[in-house]
Nucleic acid binder design. Sequence first.
DNA 1: AGGAACATTTAGATCGGTCCAAATCCGAAC
DNA 2: GTTCGGATTTGGACCGATCTAAATGTTCCT
Lengths: 345, 345
Amino acid sequence: MNDPAARRRKITLADVAAGCGVSRATVSLVLRRSPLVNAATRARVEAEFQRLGYVYNRSAASLRSRRSSSVALVINDLSNPFFAEFAAGVDEALAAAGYVTLLGSTGESAERQQAVLASLMEHDPAGVILSPAEGSDARRVCQAVGAHTPVLVFNRELAASGWDHLGLDNRDGARQATEHLLALGHTRIAFFGGHAGSSSCRQRREGYAAALAAAGLAVQPQWLVETAPTRLEAAGQAGALFARDPAPTAAVCYNDAVALGLMLGLLARGRRPGVDFAVTGFDDIPEAALSVPPLTTLAADPRARGRQAAALVLARLGQREAIAVQTIVPVQLRVRASSCAPGRP
Amino acid sequence: MNDPAARRRKITLADVAAGCGVSRATVSLVLRRSPLVNAATRARVEAEFQRLGYVYNRSAASLRSRRSSSVALVINDLSNPFFAEFAAGVDEALAAAGYVTLLGSTGESAERQQAVLASLMEHDPAGVILSPAEGSDARRVCQAVGAHTPVLVFNRELAASGWDHLGLDNRDGARQATEHLLALGHTRIAFFGGHAGSSSCRQRREGYAAALAAAGLAVQPQWLVETAPTRLEAAGQAGALFARDPAPTAAVCYNDAVALGLMLGLLARGRRPGVDFAVTGFDDIPEAALSVPPLTTLAADPRARGRQAAALVLARLGQREAIAVQTIVPVQLRVRASSCAPGRP
DNA sequence: AGGAACATTTAGATCGGTCCAAATCCGAAC
DNA sequence: GTTCGGATTTGGACCGATCTAAATGTTCCT
């Protein structure tokens, strides 16, 4: 930084070359750690990098080499801790691989998603990781992304897109939770919360129904309660479980937010979750372990999923023509105090 | 997309120019919406964009024009909802202004922060929004960022950096909370949680002390309890408040996580927050409104802060030499049930 | 007809790197 | 003293856009 050339203009590779009397091509070889260049020369050049405070211009490099060093990450809802954690995992893994993350958040709007994708594509990302907004249309997304950039779709399904997909095993997770409650001795088990229209809710209900069927029990329609996936609405709907006899003694909830809401709603009705009534969640959000009672739930480790998504999209860069991969990650049951045995009636 | 040229290679401005018999310069003018170009020509070129499925290459453009269209966003902890929300706000405002967000997350590690900054700088961002990791050193950060890229520092202070700063009014917030408790009739008020070393904790303690002083009360050292800013540790340290007589009847907490933890810890000791003991938080995270009892706290609207940060850094691009701006945002007291009046002893 | 004034278009250099093929250097082999 | 092969180095085109200054029309006066 003590060189007058550093004053105003940015230092380029040409400055470095001039500074130590070699050609630009040689400096470029040093930058790329080529074994071709002589050790002494390399040392001289690297000293000059230091002296001038040289900063590599990766965009210029990718322009010529046609190798992009960025990946676009488009998230439907960054304010949801699950996705924020996912984003952190993606960024962590991309950074480790020498890529930079181009962030776009869509706020669950398919319209914004189109605009965001179009804008990100102008920066020529090597690949795209997309957690689709509600109501995304595969055709429109494909139109924005083009046919030559690999896409990894996370969490939600995007019908017939021909892209790689990474999702949770919703069906098996709900099955595990239901079997856990059955094993405790419950026979009257509800499925509480979520919008039946969403693919994840549908899959979770399937797992729930499958576990009941395996135990020789029928699904009671009055024990299927729909709510928005928020604590507040879940708390309000708690009463729906007890509208008709026989009332359930346990509930598999769509996710943790709903489960926490339900527990509040139960308390408001004088029932003690974890004592009079068993509850399970889904996601294992940080609060699940700290609620009263602590919540039995299914852990998906969103940060690890982020790292995995990054790995998948980077792997695809080498294998552009291979068939699309559908990855379903198992989820893990975390048993805590909210899932109690049924009380003696 | 039906043109054979679209097959494999990417469509460039030269293809469009050739496709409709004008020069590359003219196509470039159309792209930039220059009024110089004839309406008929513009229409012809724009039709060709559609026909070929042309995608603008913004990196190439910024290389030549020396106008970057990205801003780096470096976040200490994306898994914290406060910062995730902040990031969403930044991205929203940057996207609206035609910039793309280069994301970097540091996981509170000053080392990683250096690496992340260095990597992001190679993509030549127009500016940097930095929410520093704990233990950041202004000199090292400056070394990574260079002297020519504007930086906006968010939340924490970075001593003597000469950069713009956006922070919350921590002092006034804690003062408001303390005055609120005083107005309710409390006189024995603790300050609970946080690391006294951090600038935000120091400022909040100052506000707390100022309010007590204004009421003619002295700060009792045994009522200043330090904890890591997590729910878990806060719950564990709750007992420290009652180690010596006289015990406090209320606590101003470092933040919401700490306050929620303290409330759990109180329950574990048979004291009912909001009934036997008053608690306030800081941040107004989404759970604050839904805890039992709902938490009195200070709202900072992180998404709006994100938009503001983006606006500040973009404003700086036009005013490179103007003096650094220190922006302190007021925070708003949200009174809820956790701050009760003192019980009759 | 000649030319000024304006509108529109364009050739060619350029941004900061990488790529390629060819040039140069050097000690060993003939 | 040449010739040869490996190790290094290099000139100059090139990536896809923008910039500059100059080249082309057009119209409209005088």
